[in-house]
Structure formats: structure tokens, C-alpha cells
Design a protein around this nucleic acid. Structure first.
Lengths: 139, 139
DNA sequence: CTTGACCCTGACACTGGTGTCAGGGTTTAT
DNA sequence: ATAAACCCTGACACCAGTGTCAGGGTCAAG
């Protein structure tokens, strides 16, 4: 009945979450995870740590950095997301950033597609003018 | 009439192309640019170097790396792109990569939008169940 | 001869999460 | 007591292009 009854060590947490031992230590250094220590210095994780790590994975997959996650993880672990004031502005700016990136990539895609089409044209026609690297200027 | 008549030094090339001196030296180390050297060790660029740098910029803007560019720059500087065999496969794989990235970002965008919508819902309704971080799972 | 504007090389920093190695302790089972 | 399987910390590498600093030449104008 004492606390730490079914605590686990880092290897087990890694196995349960699919996150490498290396990454778990990194998350700790970033302030996302704060395990107790056994007398021998080994990290001691409560069963709740599994949920915490899953939550961290979820936010990392959204493109948030560990530093950003650190700003609200504590809150979302005990409340619904909607009641953590830090989350919404972060989502907003992240969404804008993602959209900027999509626009940028779309422009590159268009440029590539046009250049490829032009190349195939020229290979068909095979041979009139010379030099032509810079006419489809750029993004 | 001797060669090097209107050659320029690195600072002038940087000014004409808008590329930093630092980057010009980097391009050289990557094998993209091979200026002569004056007796004092200064780099000596022919006027053609301006075009070369513009071409490099163009390909960098397409998302190609200096290493990739090095593989075909020589060819495209003297022929039309269409006649450089290395270019098309590179464009193809780059296009695929870009499209993968766009898909990935689009998924994140959707996930963010859904979470934001859900948060606003919950704030309206304000208050029934508890805990809800992981229901819109992830990308 | 001095000042200032150029030029040279080499090297570290940054981004950010992860792999991996070195060098060393602990625990458990045989 | 020894081997195997864990655990610990600290540090370098990666990607890739750019900024920036240190420490030092070169050259032209005053």
C-alpha cells in the first residue's frame, strides 16, 4: 500500500510507450517529466507517466516543440484542453505557421511541375533555341 | 584584352547577387563555384559568376541541396535543363518529397482545426464531464 | 605611416529531437 | 563470483545553410 507500489523503471516506460529511453531522458531535461529517484539513482515512474508520455507524443505530433508543450502540459494533464488558456493561442499561431508552410511548399510544387512539363516539351520538339535555365523564375 | 579584365572580388559578387560573402565561400566549398585566385590569394570571379550564382539561388529555392545542385550545375550552365539527364529524376523525387510534406502538414492542420473547434464547443457548453485530452487522437 | 575598407582561414553557434558511444554503477540469476 | 541485463551521466553527430567572431593579410587614399 505504500506509494511506488507498481512504479516502473525507465526501460519499462519506454517499452510501454514506444518512446526510446533516450527520448524519455530528454523530455525530463525539458521539464516534461519529473520521475522520482530510487535510492540507487534510478528513475522511478508512476503508472500515470504512461499517460503523460502519450500526451507528449500527441502534442509533438501536432508540431509543437517540447518547450511549447512544457508551457501547458501540467494544465492539460488535469483539465480538459479547453480550460487551459495557454493552448488556444498556441494552436492559432501553430496553425498559421503550418498554413504558411503549405503555401510555400505549394509554390515550389507548382514551380517543379512547370519546369518538368517544359522539359518534356523541349525534349519532344528537340532543338531550336539555346540556353534556358532561368525563365521560370522562382518561388 | 587579357583574361580577367573585368573580374571582380567576392564583395562585389555578393553585392550584385544579394548573396552573402559567407554563402559564396560556402558554395565554393560545396563545389558549386570555382573562382581563380589573384596573386595575393583573393578570389577572382569572372562576370559569368553572377549568372552562376543566380542559377544556384534558383535551385536552392526549389528545395534542392547544394550537394544535389553540384551534380548537374555544370551541365545546366551550358545546356538547356532539358538536356541534362540528371535533372528530371531529381525533380521527380523532389516533387514526391514535397507532396509527402504537404500531405503531412495538411493532416496536422486538420487535427489542429478540429481540436480548436472542439475547444470552442466545450467553452460554450461549459461544464459536464471531466478530462479530455486524447480523444482526437493524432496525425 | 596610419586609417579604413577589403580580403583570407578556421571555428563555434543555431535548430531540435534522436542515435550512439564511452565509462561506469546496480541488480539478478546462475 | 561472474555474466547479462539494466541503469546512470556526459558528450559528439546529424541536417544545411547562414551569422559571426578571432586573428591576421592587402591595398589605396590621405
Amino acid at each position: 500500500m505504500n506509494p511506488g507500489e507498481n512504479a516502473m523503471k525507465i526501460g519499462e516506460l519506454a517499452a510501454r510507450t514506444g518512446v526510446s529511453v533516450r527520448s524519455l531522458r530528454y523530455y525530463e531535461r525539458q521539464g516534461l517529466l519529473t520521475p522520482l529517484r530510487e535510492a540507487n539513482g534510478y528513475r522511478e515512474y508512476s503508472p500515470l507517466a504512461v499517460e503523460t508520455v502519450e500526451t507528449i507524443k500527441l502534442y509533438l505530433n501536432l508540431g509543437l516543440s517540447t518547450e511549447e508543450i512544457a508551457g501547458f502540459l501540467h494544465c492539460v494533464l488535469k483539465n480538459k484542453e479547453a480550460f487551459c488558456a495557454e493552448v488556444m493561442p498556441l494552436y492559432r499561431s501553430k496553425l498559421e505557421e503550418i498554413e504558411r508552410q503549405i503555401v510555400e511548399l505549394s509554390q515550389i510544387r507548382l514551380n517543379l511541375q512547370q519546369r518538368m512539363a517544359a522539359m518534356q516539351q523541349e525534349q519532344m520538339e528537340s532543338g531550336t533555341t539555346e540556353r534556358g535555365t532561368a525563365e521560370l523564375e522562382n518561388s
